[in-house]
Amino acid sequence: MNYNSDVEGLDALSLSYNRISKEISRVIIGQDEVIKAVLISILSNGHCLLIGVPGLAKTLLVNTVAQVLDLHYNRVQFTPDLMPSDIVGSEILGEDRSFKFLKGPVFANIILADEINRTPPKTQAALLEAMQEKMVTVAGKSYPLPNPFFVLATQNPIEQEGTYPLPEAQLDRFMFNVTLSYPSFKDEIEVVKSTTSNNKPELHKILTADQIQYFQQLVRNVPIVDHVLEYAVSLSAKTRPGTALATPEVNKYLSWGAGPRASQYLVIGAKCHAAISGKYSPDIEDVHAVALQILRHRIVRNYKAEAEGITADEIIKGIF
């Protein structure tokens, strides 16, 4: 894939994004913002955490994305008895009496980690190295994962029985925390119409793995002016209680705030949001467009906030 300039490449990225989201919308109805977040995280080389009640097409969404992007997709159902080897793979004794590595489901371009909070921390940790280093280590040997590599994890918020809260270190690995809501009445009618008939749309493959990697590099080349970059970093800094930039509300309601990884994701997310919107450089609006989904899982509310019913989103909006 050769474009004469980054500007030409960015025009192609914006056009490809519109084609992809239109194609996905033929199957996933009324979840435009969720589709947008998932595509931004893929193009930014990040991971995405989806939180929503059952039946909101979380699994169908990732399956559809994988088809449209022509990527290899694996689904892992997280359960309390799942072992790390069930995710990354294990060594087996071959017929020639030597050990061979049998690859687990993590060796794919897109991994759907379904109900990720249903498995103990030991197994959750098996994904940490994969998400950060894009490789897994088994018996002292490292195995690189395919490129691009993207984890889409789902959580069910209504069933707390038998769940293990995700450790902060793992939450921080996710670029976005996306909350799915119920469809509108009009959208639900469309969903029921399309899913209770024999009409199944045939999806077209729009981007290849190589094209996605090219666009991921291109997003990083997008220039950003100093005041927008400083604004993004200041948003993260304002969430840290007891520091110079912390707001009174943050000092009152938060135990701790977002780390430097949040600042990095705010900048890369703003660059990607600008690129898919047809702009060649992000502004403060682009930072705002991604900030809620980047910050909401990186701040920890204290007892006072929980007692008064103050949500993470309200605190972040106050910082804007």
Rank of each mutant, 00 (worst) to 15 (best):
H47N: 11
E23Y: 04
V53C: 11
I35V: 15
H72N: 15
N63K: 14
Q67E: 15
G52Q: 04
V68Q: 01
V65Y: 00
N74F: 09
A66W: 04
Q31R: 14
N45K: 14
L69M: 08
I51D: 05
H47W: 10
V76G: 01
K22M: 13
V34I: 13
G30A: 12
L49C: 12
L43P: 02
D32T: 12
L43K: 03
K22V: 06
H47F: 10
L50W: 08
I24H: 00
L71M: 10
L50P: 03
V76W: 02
L69Q: 03
D32F: 07
L43I: 11
Q31K: 15
I28F: 03
I51M: 14
G55H: 11
T59Y: 11
N74W: 04
L43G: 01
I51Q: 14
I42A: 04
K36T: 14
L56W: 05
V76A: 08
V62T: 13
K36R: 15
I40P: 00
I35F: 06
S41D: 06
A37V: 03
T59Q: 09
L39V: 09
I28T: 05
L43A: 07
L49S: 06
I29M: 10
N74P: 04
I28A: 04
S25T: 12
D32K: 13
T64M: 04
N63I: 05
V76H: 02
I51L: 14
S25V: 08
V27P: 03
G52S: 10
D32S: 14
V76E: 00
G55P: 06
Y73L: 14
E23H: 09
V38S: 02
K58V: 09
N74C: 13
Q31T: 07
C48F: 05
R75W: 08
V38I: 15
K22E: 15
S44W: 02
V38C: 08
V34T: 14
K58S: 07
